[in-house]
Amino acid sequence: MKLNLPKAGACLTAAALIAAGTASAHRAWMLPSTFTLSGDEQWITVDGAISNNLFTPNHVAMRLDGVTVTGPDGAAVEIQNASSGEIRSAFDVLLDQQGTYRLSSGGAGYFASWQEDGERKRWRGTAETLAAEGIEQKPDVEISRTVRRTETFVTLGAPSDGVFATEGTGLELKPVTHPNDIYASEEVSFQFLLDGAPAEGVSIELVRGHDRYRDVEGAVELTTDADGMVTFTPDTAAPYWMSAEHESEGSLNGQPIAVRTSYVVTFEALPF
């Protein structure tokens, strides 16, 4: 699927839809101070939040206990000076290897809800604690599994591909165009995988950042093709936020449950 991302007020082709107005849902994101750098060694600061407007903290801070950084050689990189306030978290990363770094936050878990003594009860945790606490035995319990990832990529020197190895669980990005080699007015192609296979029919939302300063948000809705691919052309140099979501039916101990998986990536388009 191909489209051009419009400037404010322009029209889209029939292949996409623009959602007018402001976002109605809270969105998770990580935004590095710089996406591409040069030199032998550099520092970046990364902001993380869940907000109503992209890259404007105004709701709650992102939890940092699930954040990992992977260096170009595949080894873990320690985050430094981590802190969390009410509406924003931040941490620093020292880049001392040439190539691309992967910054990721997320995890998997189970959610349950049921009625008890006239009240709606809610629970979240692992499969082990689900069984240990007897959650499955609650009357009319509804159980779902969630797998989520929020990522961004930063490159020191020339872009590299080592950090794009996939795990085969949930939604994952397998870039065709490198996330740190994107330019306004040039076509971009991303492939999405679901549990290791091309993710066909996955809903994608793409939004240019700093939507607080626009009368029209300009969110673009896409759908992956049979190969899990989406292709688009950003018209404007800016940071962008892309979200992929998929829901299917799974099972737990032979019982059907809903499985919801999501993937978010932040990247920038540079001036052409």
Rank of each mutant, 00 (worst) to 15 (best):
F232H: 06
M229A: 09
L206N: 06
L206W: 11
V264P: 02
D225P: 08
R212N: 11
G228E: 05
R212F: 13
V230D: 10
D211V: 05
G254M: 07
A238N: 14
R208P: 00
P239E: 08
G228R: 03
Y213K: 10
L206M: 11
D215H: 13
T223V: 14
A226D: 15
T231V: 15
E249T: 15
G209N: 06
V207D: 11
I257H: 01
G218Y: 03
F267E: 05
A237W: 09
P239Y: 10
E221M: 13
E221R: 13
D225T: 03
L252R: 11
I204A: 00
G218F: 03
E205K: 15
A226K: 15
V259R: 14
A258M: 08
E249A: 12
T224I: 07
E245N: 12
A244V: 09
V265H: 00
E245A: 15
H246K: 14
G250Q: 08
V220I: 13
D235P: 07
G218D: 06
D211R: 08
W241R: 00
E249V: 14
V230L: 08
T261S: 15
D225S: 08
D227L: 12
G218V: 01
R212Y: 14
V202F: 05
D235G: 13
V202Q: 05
E205D: 14
T266K: 01
I257P: 02
A219W: 07
Q255L: 10
L222N: 08
N253R: 12
S251H: 04
P256K: 10
R214C: 04
R260N: 10
S262I: 06
V259L: 11
I257R: 07
M242N: 05
W241D: 01
P239N: 12
P239D: 13
G228K: 02
R214Q: 11
H246F: 11
G209W: 06
S262T: 15
Q255S: 13
G228H: 01
G254S: 03
Y240F: 11
E205P: 03
V265W: 02
G254T: 09
V207G: 01
D227V: 05
G201W: 00
